[in-house]
Design a protein around this nucleic acid. Structure first.
Lengths: 146, 146
DNA sequence: ATAAATGCAAAAAATTTGCAGCCGT
DNA sequence: ACGGCTGCAAATTTTTTGCATTTAT
């Protein structure tokens, strides 16, 4: 297991116990990686960052799911075939992805909080809208030069 | 190949020729399915709708990609592991997905056109924003009763 | 002590690729 | 006739699952 940040670890341990999840090394490893890397990561990237001593890939899949179910991670759509995850505790934001190099930037949209209600109003068959996924696609300054 | 709608077929044939794509049975089958089914479909669903006489699954993958590259289809994120596609010619809209049963409703968001510009303004490393993906998650009336 | 989590290996599912022959232009 | 498309089969890649063992509470 890689070196972990003790401060974060303590916080995560109690967060996990607050949910119905055990504070296991596999989960702490995942949360620690995200705490040090503020961008969405796929399972494969998580595995790479965790290294060979890190959790098995099956454990990563299982924990990404349980942590998402308990609201500690959120699933993010970057337009790739495999989905990525991110810490849910980060403040609400969206992503702007470069179609050429894949670079991801966080963006905050002021209208964002009102969108759910707009959607609910527009869909007569739905009783509630609990969240949304908003990702932008474009070209970063480096790639547009080429 | 399933029965196709002649009116649509003619339109699609010339649309394909307008791009750099041949009007092949595989592509016409895909476009025809979408023309009759106004909702996002995954490759597996496309295969099911096309039936055993329809295009091979490898062809579906290849054509979904080429049609998307040429702007005739758009890739849609429904929060599932396999991505879905939709006809690009439909007017701009978003989706509201029921977290319980997976039902998908189209929604139109009035603020939507301005979002790209907001995102661009917020991301200093980016030179252009060409599009976005906005999907809502919630519960349909049937599922909320339970 | 108990139920949950883990690693490993195997299975299943999803996606991609090579290639010989077919078909649209 | 040419180059792009197609089916088929095989190879990859991604995700899930079973099970014996370990670990957190």
């Amino acid at each position: 297991m890689k070196e972990t940040c003790l401060v974060h670890t303590k916080v995560f341990q109690s967060a996990l116990r607050g949910k119905k999840l055990k504070a296991t090394p596999g989960r702490l490893a995942i949360l620690d990686i995200f705490a040090h890397c503020n961008k969405p990561l796929s399972i494969k990237e998580l595995k790479k960052m965790a290294g060979s001593a890190g959790p098995d890939i099956a454990t990563l899949y299982r924990n990404a799911e349980s942590l998402t179910a308990e609201g500690m991670l959120v699933k993010v759509n970057l337009g790739e075939k495999n989905s990525a995850y991110e810490l849910a505790s980060r403040k609400h934001h969206h992503h702007l992805i470069c179609k050429t190099c894949g670079q991801v930037a966080d963006v905050t949209i002021s209208a964002s909080p009102g969108l759910n209600q707009q959607a609910l109003k527009a869909a007569k068959d739905f009783a509630a809208v609990s969240g949304h996924s908003l990702e932008f696609f474009g070209f970063c300054k480096k790639c547009v030069k080429k």
